[in-house]
Computed example of a mutant assay.
Amino acid sequence: MKSTLSPDRTELKERWSEFKVINPKTRIRDAARELNTTEAELLAAGIGENVILLEGDFRELIKEVGLLGHVMALTRNDHVVHERKGTYEKISFNNHVGLVLGPDIDLRLFLGDWKFGFAVSENDRHSLQFFNSYGEAAHKIYLTEKSNKGAYDALVGKYSAADQNLNLFFSPKPEKAVEAEALPDLDVAAFQAEWLALKDTHDFFTLLRKYKLSRKQALRHAPAGYAYQIEPGSMKPVFDAVSAAQLPIMVFVSNPNCIQIHTGPVNKIFVMGPWLNIMDPEFNLHLREDAIDEAWVVRKPTEDGIVTGIELIDKDGVMFNQFFGKRKPGIPELAEWPELIERTVTKAN
Score class of each variant (00 low, 15 high):
195 W>V: 02
206 T>I: 01
197 A>M: 01
214 S>D: 13
182 A>R: 13
178 V>Y: 01
164 Q>N: 04
207 L>V: 01
175 E>R: 10
205 F>W: 00
209 R>A: 11
171 S>P: 10
183 L>E: 03
160 S>R: 05
168 L>W: 04
192 Q>Y: 15
182 A>Q: 12
202 H>C: 09
208 L>I: 02
174 P>H: 12
201 T>H: 01
193 A>K: 15
204 F>S: 09
207 L>K: 00
187 D>C: 05
200 D>N: 03
196 L>F: 00
195 W>N: 04
204 F>I: 05
203 D>G: 08
175 E>W: 03
201 T>V: 14
159 Y>E: 07
186 L>C: 11
211 Y>E: 09
191 F>I: 06
181 E>P: 00
198 L>Y: 00
211 Y>M: 13
199 K>H: 08
162 A>H: 09
167 N>A: 10
168 L>I: 10
204 F>M: 08
164 Q>C: 03
181 E>M: 06
194 E>K: 09
214 S>L: 14
187 D>K: 05
196 L>N: 00
168 L>R: 07
205 F>K: 03
203 D>K: 12
201 T>P: 01
166 L>M: 14
159 Y>Q: 10
214 S>F: 14
172 P>Q: 10
192 Q>S: 13
183 L>W: 09
194 E>G: 06
162 A>M: 03
195 W>R: 05
173 K>G: 07
178 V>D: 01
214 S>I: 14
174 P>S: 09
212 K>T: 11
183 L>I: 12
163 D>W: 10
193 A>W: 08
194 E>V: 04
192 Q>F: 14
